[in-house]
């Protein structure tokens, strides 16, 4: 994946970090409400990372913790696993969800700080299907061309949750679904868990 796209992912994921205490849940998702949610999340994430009163690793962990509330991780994780979900034990399902959530949160959150000076702006919002809204955003970077990304947001309970991101027309969830299926085919489900663990359990920078 080109680094530019990765940088967008990380901004978007980071921006989605925080819970939103906006309007009440509705059967369909208000595009305007979803756009405000994304905007607000982005601002909160940048402010959390920009503070320097605690070690970077702690700030990144804080943002990951906040991000957890901005994504429907269970929904995404299950979609990405596809038909394999029903073939594994309950314990394996739980372990997968734990690792997958860490993977989503850690992979993308660890990138944001590397792209200081980027700005995220909302360029549009529209309904998607009967339940969701798509929020269109543009990331402007100090170097390189701007990147357009679309967030699929669903109102659930009393909050908005991100259920997918598309960058340059490529859905993250669909891409991962295909990648995971390939790992399972070649190395089994425990091979996938090992791969996810390896991606999320690296040692951090040393001092």
């Amino acid at each position: 994946m080109p680094s530019g796209i990765r940088s967008v992912f990380c901004i978007l994921f980071f921006a989605a970090a925080l819970s939103y205490s906006g309007g009440p849940a509705k059967a369909s998702t208000s595009p305007q409400g979803a756009a405000q949610f994304i905007q607000w999340l982005g601002e909160q994430a940048i402010s959390t990372l920009g503070s320097t009163n605690s070690p970077l690793a702690h700030r990144e962990a804080s943002v990951r913790q906040l991000m957890r509330q901005g994504f429907d991780l269970a929904f995404i994780g299950r979609f990405v696993l596809g038909r394999h979900w029903r073939k594994v034990s309950t314990d394996q399902q739980a372990h997968y969800q734990e690792l997958f959530s860490s993977y989503i949160l850690q992979t993308y959150s660890s990138h944001l700080g590397g792209y200081t000076g980027e700005t995220l702006s909302i360029t549009g919002a529209k309904p998607a299907g009967s339940k969701d809204a798509i929020v269109q955003t543009r990331i402007v970077r100090p170097s390189g061309p701007p990147i357009d990304a679309h967030w699929r947001v669903r109102a659930k309970g009393n909050q908005f949750l991100i259920i997918d991101i598309s960058v340059e027309g490529v859905s993250m969830a669909v891409t991962q679904r295909s990648e995971f299926a390939s790992v399972i085919k070649n190395h089994g489900f425990e091979g996938l868990l090992a791969a996810l663990r390896a991606r999320t359990d690296k040692m951090p920078a040393a001092n």
Binding site: E179, S182, V183, N186, H187, G191, L192, A194, A195, R197, A198, R199, D201, K202, M203, A206
Partner: peptide
């Protein structure tokens, strides 16, 4: 050890679908 662990993690991470268990 931290570098050894991360190196092993790379071989286990299956980027592109390939794992190298032996190096890991």
């Amino acid at each position: 050890a931290a570098a050894q662990h991360n190196l092993a993690s790379h071989y286990l991470a299956a980027i592109g679908g390939n794992l190298d268990f032996q190096e890991a």
